[in-house]
Deep mutational scan, measured.
Amino acid sequence: LVRYRTISKIPQITLNFVDLKGDPFLASPTSDREIIAPKIKERTHNVTEKVTQVLSLGADVLPEYKLQAPRIHRWTILHYSPFKAVWDWLILLLVIYTAVFTPYSAAFLLKETEEGPPATECGYACQPLAVVDLIVDIMFIVDILINFRTTYVNANEEVVSHPGRIAVHYFKGWFLIDMVAAIPFDLLIFGSGSEELIGLLKTARLLRLVRVARKLDRYSEYGAAVLFLLMCTFALIAHWLACIWYAIGNMEQPHMDSRIGWLHNLGDQIGKPYNSSGLGGPSIKDKYVTALYFTFSSLTSVGFGNVSPNTNSEKIFSICVMLIGSLMYASIFGNVSAIIQRLYSGTARYHTQMLRVREFIRFHQIPNPLRQRLEEYFQHAWSYTNGIDMNAVLKGFPECLQADICLHLNRSLLQHCKPFRGATKGCLRALAMKFKTTHAPPGDTLVHAGDLLTALYFISRGSIEILRGDVVVAILGKNDIFGEPLNLYARPGKSNGDVRALTYCDLHKIHR
């Protein structure tokens, strides 16, 4: 019993810090008490220290592992850092350059016999395009090294910054494609005289377009951006097909006994025919423009016929181009109408809503002055909100995010209106959640004399007048207030005048 009563005193000691020596009952000389009392004092002292730490809000209350900052290894790049964003855009520009100039170089340097010394005699450094290609190869190699040090988000939505895990993730992902696209074939085969082989191998750079397509997928929600990307894709495919079309004609031209190829026909049409040795002929500019003209006309199913396939190889390629053109029509131009419709969806919704308003007016036989006010209010409210119901949009977000959005939407009023000066951010967040926005066209009466005042109004834009009878008592403008002081009276009061809008007004109100 003594032991039980001794232990039962522990909660009292913990909360009230009572010393055991003052209790005459606990001072009985028993061996059990002498053993338990020192333990009680020690526990009391420890609990006292913990309570003191909690009340003082000291940093040592938290466990040590929670006080440590997340460790980022040296030379690790955050995937959302500004440097990584700028670097990704730079790589994107280099990939676009590669997609345009690599097929052009591979096709127009394929057994090209233009006048001038061969590239091997001039030297590697004197070729501007080769120098640019070398810079692109170096940048792609540097990009691989950067990807080995860039964080990523795993399946659990955690940012991984450990170098080993980053390397394994990159090896399992895009490393092989990036490595093949970054191989400097110019340096590996330079001086061997195989410019045709170098041009063909350099087309491996186009593998990076797969990554670019995935990154550009984030802009699919913007109709104008999608339309622009589709047109660029169409032009890029036409450019690639033009390079292939020229390569076919250029390879067949020296081996044909009869002059029936499209390059021969082009030379005869523009007065620059090929001679018996295969030299001469149109310039590279004429060849490229004509090839691009043929691919565009074939892809769009126009086909004027002034550039036509004559050999079997050219006919087979033309059939493939027609098939590609039909697929592009289905996948690209078939979506253009939907994209344009999405661009004008706001206008369509406006006309639909206006039609419903006019049908309501016609069905209920609203008189002319009231009908005009109804239409003007709808037009003004639509121009202010673009038909978007803010309350319906915010309803799907958590309250903390709703408060931040409301604070942002009402920031101008909260910053410049005098009653809100000096208020804490928590108070402003709470008030912003209570605001209701209303609009009024010129001549609209917001409050009639004798109406119950259940709200306090803040003028965000425009001006109003307060009338008693036919006498203008006051004219209020931006950041002015009218209405009933909230919670100042037990019952809502009545208006002693009319409140009429002089201009288009936007008002925020808080109800009782």
Rank of each mutant, 00 (worst) to 15 (best):
A155S: 14
I324H: 01
A155H: 13
G426Y: 01
I248Q: 01
N275I: 01
P254E: 15
V226Y: 13
S301P: 04
Y222F: 15
L94W: 04
F378S: 06
G223S: 05
N265H: 13
V212G: 04
S192N: 13
L176S: 11
A247W: 11
S105K: 15
Y288F: 01
Y97C: 01
Y124I: 11
L299N: 01
F228E: 01
G426I: 01
F234A: 03
V159G: 01
L92Q: 07
Q127R: 05
L227Y: 03
V447K: 01
R205C: 01
F190W: 13
I340G: 02
M179P: 01
T385M: 13
Q68R: 11
A167Y: 01
S337Y: 10
A130G: 03
A392H: 15
I91P: 01
L446D: 01
T347G: 10
A224K: 01
S326N: 01
Q341T: 08
Y104Q: 01
C122G: 01
I144D: 01
L197W: 04
P367V: 03
A99G: 04
A119T: 04
F108C: 01
E314A: 02
V95H: 01
V131I: 14
E157N: 11
T385N: 15
P398R: 02
R356H: 12
L187Q: 13
E376R: 13
G280N: 01
W240T: 01
I135K: 01
R362K: 13
K111S: 03
R74N: 06
G325Y: 01
T120S: 12
L428P: 01
I270H: 01
P273G: 01
E64I: 10
L401V: 10
Y170A: 01
G303P: 01
V210I: 13
V357Q: 03
R373C: 03
A423L: 08
I135M: 14
S326K: 04
G193V: 03
I332A: 03
I237C: 09
Y344P: 03
L134M: 08
T352P: 03
V142L: 10
Y170T: 01
Y170E: 01
S301H: 15
S192E: 11
S105D: 02
A392T: 05
R362Q: 05
K66S: 13
L343Y: 12
E157Q: 14
E196W: 04
Y80L: 06
T233E: 04
N368Q: 12
F435W: 05
L428Q: 13
S313I: 14
F234W: 08
K395Y: 09
I135A: 04
L266K: 04
C417P: 03
H408L: 03
A167R: 03
Q68A: 13
E114S: 07
W174H: 03
I366L: 05
T102A: 07
Y344V: 04
L446P: 02
R342D: 04
E375Q: 09
F108A: 01
I405F: 01
P184F: 01
N156C: 11
A338R: 04
G422P: 04
R211I: 01
S337T: 11
C243D: 01
D143C: 01
Y293M: 04
H408F: 04
P369K: 04
Y350H: 04
C122Q: 01
R71M: 11
K436S: 09
L109E: 01
G422V: 09
L200F: 10
P419S: 12
M179C: 14
N156R: 09
E375N: 08
A238S: 01
I284E: 04
Y274S: 01
L92G: 01
S412G: 09
F140Q: 01
L241V: 01
F378Q: 13
L266C: 03
A403Q: 10
G305Y: 01
P184I: 01
G223Y: 05
F228I: 10
I77E: 01
A423W: 01
R362F: 01
V95M: 04
S258K: 15
E314G: 01
L414C: 01
S337Q: 08
G173P: 01
N154A: 11
R421A: 09
S81A: 12
P273F: 01
M328D: 01
I91Y: 01
P419M: 04
I91D: 01
I177H: 01
V159S: 01
L227I: 14
N265P: 01
Y65E: 05
L176F: 14
Q353G: 08
V86K: 03
S277Q: 09
F83R: 14
L374N: 01
P117M: 15
I284Q: 03
S258T: 11
T424F: 02
E252D: 01
V307S: 01
D404C: 02
S298L: 12
L343F: 14
G223N: 04
E64M: 04
S383E: 09
R218V: 05
D217Q: 08
T113M: 03
N275Y: 01
F83H: 15
L145I: 01
W262Q: 03
F171E: 01
H162P: 01
R349D: 15
L207I: 14
R362D: 03
F294E: 01
G261Y: 01
I138T: 03
T102W: 05
G443H: 06
G422Q: 13
G173H: 13
S277E: 12
L93E: 01
F333V: 04
L327M: 04
A204K: 01
A242Q: 01
Y222R: 04
K84I: 04
Y350V: 03
V159I: 10
F435H: 02
K425Q: 11
L413P: 09
T120Y: 06
P118H: 09
A69D: 14
D268K: 11
S301K: 12
K287A: 13
L110S: 15
L229H: 03
F435A: 03
A69H: 06
K395E: 13
Q402L: 03
F228A: 09
L374A: 06
E121D: 15
C400F: 03
T98V: 10
F83S: 08
G334M: 01
L78N: 09
Q68V: 09
H439V: 13
E112Q: 05
P369N: 07
D286S: 01
A242P: 01
M390A: 05
V100P: 01
Q415P: 04
P184H: 01
L145T: 04
K395G: 11
M231C: 05
Q372N: 06
S105T: 08
I324M: 07
V210T: 11
N391H: 12
K434I: 03
E157W: 10
G426S: 05
Q269S: 05
Q379M: 04
L446F: 09
V159H: 07
R211M: 03
A238R: 01
H162A: 14
M328K: 03
R358Y: 03
S345D: 09
G426A: 07
I324V: 08
Q372R: 10
L236K: 01
L207A: 14
E112Y: 15
M433S: 06
D404M: 02
Y329C: 14
M139C: 04
L299P: 01
M328S: 04
I388S: 03
A423E: 01
W174S: 05
F175R: 01
M231P: 01
N368K: 12
E114K: 14
I138G: 02
N154S: 14
T438S: 11
F101T: 03
E252W: 01
L197T: 05
M433A: 04
I146E: 01
L409Y: 03
A69L: 05
V226D: 10
C122P: 01
L134N: 01
P128F: 15
T347K: 03
E115R: 15
S298C: 15
P419K: 02
A213P: 06
W262S: 03
A330T: 01
E195N: 07
L409C: 03
Y222I: 05
P118K: 15
N386H: 04
F304A: 05
S345G: 05
L230I: 10
P184L: 01
A224F: 14
K66C: 03
A106M: 08
N335Y: 13
L229M: 09
I96W: 01
Y293K: 01
N391F: 10
P163H: 03
Y80P: 01
